[in-house]
Each structure stands twice: as structure tokens, then as C-alpha cells.
Design a protein around this nucleic acid. Sequence first.
DNA 1: TTATTATATTCCCATATGGGAATATGTCAA
DNA 2: TTGACATATTCCCATATGGGAATATAATAA
Lengths: 114, 114
Amino acid sequence: MARLATTTDVFNAVAEPQRREILDLLARGERSVNEITTSLGLKQPQVSKHLRVLSEVGLVTVRKDGKQRLYRLRGETLKPIHEWVSSFEHIWNERLDRLEQYLNQLQNKENEHE
Amino acid sequence: MARLATTTDVFNAVAEPQRREILDLLARGERSVNEITTSLGLKQPQVSKHLRVLSEVGLVTVRKDGKQRLYRLRGETLKPIHEWVSSFEHIWNERLDRLEQYLNQLQNKENEHE
DNA sequence: TTATTATATTCCCATATGGGAATATGTCAA
DNA sequence: TTGACATATTCCCATATGGGAATATAATAA
């Protein structure tokens, strides 16, 4: 059984770092394939392949402008990741809260000795 | 060139849904392999293999208790994902802001006609 | 020591990459 | 129509799965 396809869902699509970089770039605004290629220092076919994956999971949209294909980010598609990972937020915050309490207790003890 | 290994980073580790489910379960507290197996309806070797991946990227820790291996979530390891995906949050919020403005404008125009 | 229980690991398989290399396709200008 | 430019796609390759099946390893009880 192979791994799930990269186009299965958003989690799989962004597992590849180059695709994350493309999204980072598009977050700053619409870009043509060539702009992505030169900005990230990738080969053009690479970029096209990655964009196809991103397009199939709905993370980007494309519009034609003459010879150019301009790609735009659909950031909302990342929400499932945000929601999933945010469900763990209380855990590391809880850990921090405990640390704060512990440090406060330490400080209170020091004040008692003064 | 193969895909990056699942143990390359956290993004790759959580691309597989079963591994996300394991993390969801561990978020509720430490669990033995057998508990994960029965809770998620997976086969034991499957679970062990997934746990190995999660362990190698630092998402879980394991302690021995007699015959049992108890696994615990290290949720902080998910922070890079949270940070990355949160950098896009302003985008979908911005889109909502614009929609509100647009709706407000529509409403103002309707008030003018009354 | 043997049997039971809990879990990790190995071997195997079919599958899907991501990039290289090359080519096909689409658009526009001359 | 041809050539230039922008981009998508195909073929190929080596690689790493995730699960099945089986087995190895570890811990405990009798």
C-alpha cells in the first residue's frame, strides 16, 4: 500500500517543503509561474508540478493573462490544518501555565526568606 | 527521487491520517499500545509502526511499565505547524473583513433608499 | 523453565512520488 | 506562418512507504 496521494488532502499537499515555500510566496500576492520559478530558484517543470498538486487540493487558483498563468493562494483551504493543530494548543499552554505557577512559587519562597 | 521520509519533519509525520488519530487520542492522556490499538480499531503492528515514526520526530515519548509501553504526546513538537499555518490566518480574516465591509455598504445603500 | 502476554521488527508487495530530461501545448509578435 | 516565450505534461528512475503476514523480543506469571 502506497502512501496516500499528495492530492488526498491538504496535510499531504503541504508535507513537501517546496510546496510550502510556494504558498509562502503566494501569501504575498498573485504570482506567475516564472516569478515563482525565479524567486525560489527552482526549475520551471518542478514548479508546474507542484502547482498542479496545490491546485488539485484547492490551495491555489489560476487565471490566464495572455501567455501567463497567474496563481493565487486560497488560504482558507489551510483551515483544517489550523483547526487540527489548534486543538493541541491548550496542551502546550497548559504546560507553560504550570511552569509559571512553579516559578511563582519559587519566587514566593525567596520573598519569605527576605 | 522519493518523497521525503515520514520522519523528516513534523509536516511529513502527520500527513498520514492514522497518525493524526493517534495524536488526537494521546492528547487525552498517556496510552499503552494495546489501548491505542483497540480504541482506533487498528492492528497492533500498524500501531507500533506509526508510533515509531511519531517517536522519531519527537511527537511522542515512551516509558516502560512492566510489559507495557506507555506513550505520551509531546504537543509542543506541533508548534512549527501551528506557526506556519497561523502565518496565513490574516489572509482568511482579511477576506472576512472585506466581506463585512461590502455587506455594510450594501446595507447603507438600502437605508438611503428608505 | 515454560507459557502467556505485550510489543517491536522484518520481509514483502504494490504504489505514488519529486526531480531530471525531453517534449508538448498555448499565446503572442513579427 | 514562423519564431519566441510561457507553461504544462510525459516518460523514466530510484526511493520510501503502510499494511499484510510472520516472526522476534521483552516482561511477567506459574
